[in-house]
Amino acid sequence: MIERTPVLNILTHFILAVGFILLFLPLWIAFVAATHTIQAVNSAPVELWPGNQLWVNMQEAWVKSDFGQKFVNTLIVAVAVVIGKITIAAITAFGIVFFNHRLRMVIFWLIFITLMLPLEVRIVPTYAVAANALLPFQKLMDWTGLTWLIESASGIRVAMEWNLLNSYTGLILPLIATATGTFLYRQFFLTIPDELVEAAKMDGSGPLRFLWDILIPLSRTNIAALATIMFVYAWNQYLWPLLVITDRANYGLVVVELRTLVPDSLTTGGGTPTWHLAMAATLMIMIPPILVVIFMQRWFVRGLINTDK
């Protein structure tokens, strides 16, 4: 719209600039802290201009927290969660939309309700499951008398155990169920015209072939949008890895490492707080998801708006 509002334009720029600075300032201060020596960082007033120690601090933080293995682990977990979520969302939605069975709505609601059970509210029992992922099945068999039946028939007592603690599976598997992703895919599949399904059937294509050769290529935009938000989600996981992984040297993730970087009396033993290292490490941990959001901004925004509840 063409309007001449010079005063208001200045005000607009002013408000946006203030907002930008408010959002940027905390990170700027963290960044500046990462570029100074321990003495400069711990002296008031706070430094507002970067020093020349960034590379040194980053190297020291990297070695101190043993980030090499942990970055590799985080990347493995994030990529696996992204692939797992997209796969499971696509196939579940496919099973709900393109087949005519009575359980469609039941399955849909079962997945839907999981939205109301975020990890934080079921954390203690979920941890018990992680110690033995087959426990629910064992309990079900015990209750239904199946264990007793098998034991009296064959003399073998069924005791199933699958420990997920300290493993990639334990980090990945509980995170790949996705109600939001399933909905996004369901919405998309509902827009596929019947004619396409009929044409595929006439050409002799079975359901799996239809999924792989027609639906997946058509859903590229969905995949891009989901992948960006799921990557950020998976990279930033904190509470779950914190509990499942005790062997931090081999299976530790970088985000969980933030907890050990808090320079309080416990970690520094009364010495000068190592803020310069904590901030350097924090910066390194933040960078990958920030890059994804900035460079995949279009997909990211689309994914966020389409999936969220």
Partner: peptide, 15 residues
């Protein structure tokens, strides 16, 4: 305005 969304909650806490 958008990029802070990418930062993990514990990283925000530590910063």
């Amino acid at each position: 305005m958008i990029w802070p969304y990418a930062i993990a909650a514990p990283a925000v806490g530590l910063a």
